[in-house]
Simulated scan of single mutants.
Amino acid sequence: MKFLCAGSDLAEAGSRGFEIEGKKLFAVRRGGQVFVYFNRCPHRGVGLEWQPDQFLDPSNSLIQCATHGALFLIENGECVAGPCAGQSLTAIECREDTQGVWIDV
């Protein structure tokens, strides 16, 4: 497992981008749980954020691709609206402990 960030670095209903070993990924905290995905839209393979560390729609309830507006469920990465509906983001296994968030890449 690789260290991603301190738990306090990822606010509730917040998102943050990272680059680890040349791989771009992002994390979202929802309901106290952390979800981590590769930062790559299944539609065109582009990064999702519209500004640094901004991966969520205005309501902070869905992940949103800045390029074509595709919307993804935070809990499983499934696209529920947009050009890649039915496809999913690639999840990265993660866990959180007192030191912070850890990922398995």
Rank of each mutant, 00 (worst) to 15 (best):
D57E: 08
Q64G: 02
E21N: 10
N39T: 04
Q99R: 14
K24E: 08
S61V: 11
A6R: 15
G32K: 09
V80T: 14
E93K: 11
F72K: 09
P52D: 12
I92M: 00
S8R: 13
C79P: 00
D104C: 10
G47Q: 12
G14T: 04
E75V: 12
L4T: 05
V46M: 10
D104S: 12
D104L: 09
Q51E: 15
W50T: 03
C41Y: 03
S8V: 11
V46A: 11
E12C: 05
I103D: 03
E78Q: 15
I63W: 05
R29F: 00
D97P: 11
N60C: 12
L10C: 03
C65D: 05
F55T: 05
L4N: 05
T67V: 11
K24D: 04
G17E: 07
A85E: 15
V101L: 15
N60A: 11
A70L: 01
S61Q: 14
T67P: 00
W102E: 03
A11Q: 11
G31M: 02
D57C: 09
H68E: 04
S8L: 09
V101M: 09
V101Y: 09
S59W: 11
L89N: 02
L25M: 14
R30M: 13
H43S: 10
S8Q: 14
N76M: 04
A13V: 00
P52F: 10
F18P: 06
L62H: 13
V34T: 13
W102A: 00
L25W: 06
S61T: 15
K23N: 11
E49W: 06
F38R: 10
D97L: 12
C84M: 02
G31F: 03
Q64E: 13
F3R: 05
C41P: 01
I20H: 10
F35V: 10
E19I: 13
C41G: 02
A85C: 12
P52V: 09
A81K: 14
N60D: 12
C41T: 02
D57K: 03
G32N: 11
S15P: 01
I63P: 08
C5R: 08
A6T: 09
A6E: 14
F3M: 07
G86V: 05
D57S: 06
L4K: 06
L10A: 02
S8D: 14
A91P: 12
Y37M: 07
F18I: 06
E78S: 13
A13Y: 07
A81F: 14
H68K: 04
K23F: 05
G45Y: 03
C79R: 01
